[in-house]
Simulated scan of single mutants.
Amino acid sequence: MAVVSLTCYLLPYMEADGAANMALDEALLERVAAEPGAGYLRTYGWSPATLSLGYFQDLDEVAADPRWRDAPLVRRATGGGAIWHDRELTYSLALPADHRGSQPGPWLYRAVHASIGAELRARGLDARARSEAGPHAPPAGAASGRPDRPFLCFTDRDPEDIVAASSKVVGSAARRRAGAVLQHGSILLRRSERAPELPGICDLIEADPRPEAWAGPIARCVAAALDLTLVDPGGPLVGSLHERACALEQAVYRDPAWTGRRSPTARRRAAARDG
């Protein structure tokens, strides 16, 4: 059976703060869950630079490292480790339930990362999935010395993360709703002063470090890998998405109760300690 290309609305590159960015991503997931006729793809930056916590991470972990104590903070609806969004490009992809990428399993993660890895190799960077990187792959295990996963996503080691010169440069996370999926991920472009241990692509090769310079190429390579036909969403559609995102921004992502939520593991530990 021939693969039918899915119409995918490509939103323009934009920069926003953490709450606005996460709210718009959730609005995209809501839209494809309710209206499965098309997908959505966007790239964006963060202004100001922001630390995003994974859904299951505890706020106490932020205070454990002095460099994050005064950093702008937002909690994602997706899992995984914390990401310091500075000098990087974030992509966000929302697919309806009937697209292959929405099915449970690693196919979407692998397909998106393979397309980005191919784009990086075309620019001269030997970047590939950790599972394919052989002796140049970063070692498995947490660098933080904790028995569980490390705090920062880019010090974690998933077999499908994209690594180059022994450093992770691309990592992603996903959330599903009513069969639809949202996957978003970070592409490190340049080393940040707050996280100097994490080099970016432009620290490893000569390339334009501006996120907006990467937005178009990344969107096109992801769309090609997933058989997506990119189209302009038009003003009214973009406006309705931003209207819903504004509501989510205020109700969820700017709510201290959401940002400060504790994981089930932390709640159990606290209950045992207080009991």
Rank of each mutant, 00 (worst) to 15 (best):
D86E: 15
R87H: 13
R87P: 00
Y91R: 00
S92I: 00
L93F: 07
L93E: 09
A97W: 07
H99Q: 10
P104H: 02
G105M: 02
G105V: 00
P106N: 06
P106Q: 06
W107H: 10
W107Q: 13
W107M: 08
W107G: 11
R110C: 08
H113G: 06
H113E: 03
A118Q: 14
R121A: 10
G124Q: 09
L125A: 05
D126N: 07
A127Y: 06
R128D: 06
R130F: 02
R130H: 02
E132C: 01
A137Q: 02
A142M: 05
A142C: 11
A143Q: 08
D148G: 15
R149E: 13
F151N: 00
C153E: 10
C153N: 06
D156M: 09
E160S: 15
D161F: 01
I162P: 01
I162H: 02
V163F: 05
V163Y: 02
A164E: 12
S166P: 00
K168H: 04
V170H: 09
V170I: 15
R175C: 06
R176Y: 08
A178M: 07
A178D: 14
G179W: 00
G179T: 03
S186A: 15
L189E: 08
S192W: 03
R194H: 12
P196H: 11
P196I: 13
L198M: 12
I201T: 12
I201Q: 06
C202A: 08
C202P: 05
P211S: 14
W214H: 09
P217F: 02
P217H: 05
